[in-house]
Design a protein around this nucleic acid. Structure first.
Lengths: 157, 157
DNA sequence: CCAGACATTTGTACTTATGCAACTTTTGTA
DNA sequence: TACAAAAGTTGCATAAGTACAAATGTCTGG
């Protein structure tokens, strides 16, 4: 007989294997961006793109870096036209950074590439299997919950 | 009615969401290692651990870095006791690097942590749902195939 | 056996990321 | 209105990663 422990283990192994495949897709989707930006810079762009315009100080906290470090990284991104940096309308000692069109375009491109790659994998499945994938992925995502921001930062996402 | 295009799109979205959750788990599993090693160093360790002892030159090609770059990175890893470096028995101009027990332990620890984290998520599901996850993950992994080594390197894996 | 090929390391130089300390500017308040 | 706190930037310092060129040591074929 097959024990419930074997069944659980099989599910774990399948998920680990699947995670490798997904990781490969995620990595490939980022490779274009990483030809133009460092991982640290791309991370900043993603955070800023999803959170919207931020004060330097808040962004430094989000990213877990020293304000002076952020200042330099923002220098570089601004020089490349990826973000804008301007004095706050409310307080002239505050500086607001925001993703530029170019910056947003890059993030969107990565997202689009990722989605396309996943779509391409799923296209190879017949509808019933695709539905099974949808169900399995949904269940897993619900059980896992949203990853925390600090966790994602580890990998520069 | 629900079109087949909607169904496909739902599967894509579920997979994208799931990939975010998995990415979070992967990232967290690496966080311990990244307190002691840089991403580049950890990547080298993973490659070497899975491929076995290598010549410097071959490893440099695997990692896509210049031999001199590798030499310096190996200096650091060797100083930390993560790997060993010795002159080849076959040819004294070749140098073989291999993961040390400490290095292997670190990689194994990360793998173990990852598996444990996934197990912990799956434990929250009832057996039927867990089986659905297993099926979905298996189908996806089969359709996606093995990620290529260069792809994984992008994220330092 | 030795001249050129090969494998690796070293010398040098540059970029990014990083933090601390000091400085400037701006606010807010006693 | 002065003065302290707040927000950012700049001056330093350090470490890692990166590549190119040159040096070192080792092999190998004619």
């Amino acid at each position: 007989m097959t024990s419930s422990r074997d069944a659980a283990s099989a599910a774990i192994t399948a998920t680990v294997t699947s995670s490798r495949a997904l990781l490969g897709i995620v990595a490939r989707s980022m490779s274009g961006a990483l030809e133009e930006l460092s991982l640290v810079q791309f991370r900043l762009l993603v955070v800023l793109d999803s959170a919207g315009p931020q004060r330097m100080g808040d962004l430094a906290v989000s990213l877990g870096v020293h304000p002076s470090t952020l200042s330099r990284t923002v220098d570089r991104l601004e020089a490349g036209g990826w973000i804008s940096r301007e004095v706050s309308a409310e307080s002239r000692r505050e500086v607001i950074v925001a993703v530029s069109d170019k910056g947003h375009g890059m993030v969107a491109e990565v997202t689009r590439t990722r989605r396309r790659a996943i779509a391409s994998v799923l296209r190879d499945l017949d509808p019933a299997d695709r539905e099974a994938v949808r169900i399995g992925m949904t269940l897993f995502a619900e059980a896992a919950g949203e990853p925390s921001a600090p966790d994602m930062l580890t990998l520069g996402l």
